[in-house]
């Protein structure tokens, strides 16, 4: 089985380890990702201005291109892309007149009809593959590892657009349980990390990340897992204020470890806070493997 894949800029520019680990994990589960031939930035942030349609051109062009390339479903890995694409899709599905204006402006061979489905990787794993199947591929259960799932906002909000209950999400918890790990939960899992304030108000991000990491530590977590490259950047680089920083991993990296995949595709050495030492101490990764 294959699925059309929309990567987004951040994945390509700064989250290579997320992409390679996803490819490896999905290949193990029998799913091939087919990257779209031509694609543009998703638009990054969904514009709430009702009269500024130019902000929606980018996401709608992505759909129009996939429609032209013959696709009907689109996989995204990045929470920001997922959110922007879903919200723009929702807008043009609800609002025929705005859809028409955008289509007129884009002037593609075919108008975008609103029929493409956007799926976040976590939805594919939960709803298509299923935890039972995932469990069958676990070679090294993550027994004794306590994981703090961090959702942030883009995956869950606004309600109805997110992939899980915005107040009490469970998809990462269930997935980590499937891998054999213990899970530490806390309300701060759904608090925003400060997002793009990293660009010119990084003190906001440092403060928020500090609180989140401290709470995770208090709850006995060994690592934080997440699915968003921007959250990852913030949590991985802004734990300077925390006494003992926790490694921050993409959930697919831990799936890869549990599946016993090659460490070089998992990119565990591409983090500011090194996760390898911990994984080695707990016996999930052998010393010679960690030398990649």
């Amino acid at each position: 089985m294959h699925i059309d894949y929309y990567p987004g800029c951040t994945i390509k520019a700064s989250a290579g380890q997320y992409e390679t680990s996803v490819r490896a994990v999905l290949a193990t589960l029998g799913i091939q990702m087919k990257e779209m031939e031509q694609w543009n930035c998703c638009g990054v942030v969904h514009s709430l201005a009702s009269d500024n349609l130019i902000r929606h051109i980018a996401p709608i062009r992505v759909f129009a291109r996939l429609q032209e390339q013959g696709g009907s479903e689109m996989l995204t890995l990045c929470d920001m892309c997922y959110n922007t694409l879903s919200q723009a899709n929702h807008l043009v599905r609800q609002n025929a007149r705005q859809r028409e204006s955008i289509n007129d402006f884009i002037e593609a061979e075919e108008d975008y009809d609103g029929e493409i489905h956007v799926l976040h990787l976590l939805q594919i794993l939960r709803d298509r593959v299923g935890y039972q199947t995932i469990k069958k591929h676990v070679r090294r259960a993550l027994q004794g590892l306590t994981v703090f799932p961090y959702y942030g906002c883009k995956l869950l909000r606004p309600g109805g657009m997110g992939i899980d209950d915005p107040e009490a999400p469970r998809v990462l918890r269930d997935l980590m349980h499937t891998l054999g790990a213990a899970v530490a939960d806390d309300p701060l899992q759904t608090q925003c990390c400060g997002s793009y304030h990293i660009v010119n108000h990084d003190e906001i991000v440092s403060r928020r990340v500090g609180k989140i990491a401290a709470r995770a530590l208090e709850r006995g977590a060994d690592v934080i897992v997440l699915s968003c490259p921007l959250c990852h950047f913030n949590l991985d680089t802004r734990q300077a204020l925390v006494d003992s920083p926790l490694p921050v991993l993409y959930f697919t990296q831990l799936m890869g470890v549990a599946f016993g995949l090659d460490l070089d595709v998992l990119g565990l050495n591409q983090h500011h806070i090194d996760p390898l030492m911990l994984l080695q101490q707990r016996g999930f990764v052998q010393e010679e493997e960690a030398l990649v």
Binding site: C41, G43, I54, F105, I106
Partner: peptide, 13 residues
């Protein structure tokens, strides 16, 4: 780093 303004592209073509 040299041309940060490319991030403002709205994909209008």
């Amino acid at each position: 780093q040299y041309y940060p303004e490319v991030a403002a592209c709205v994909s209008c073509n």
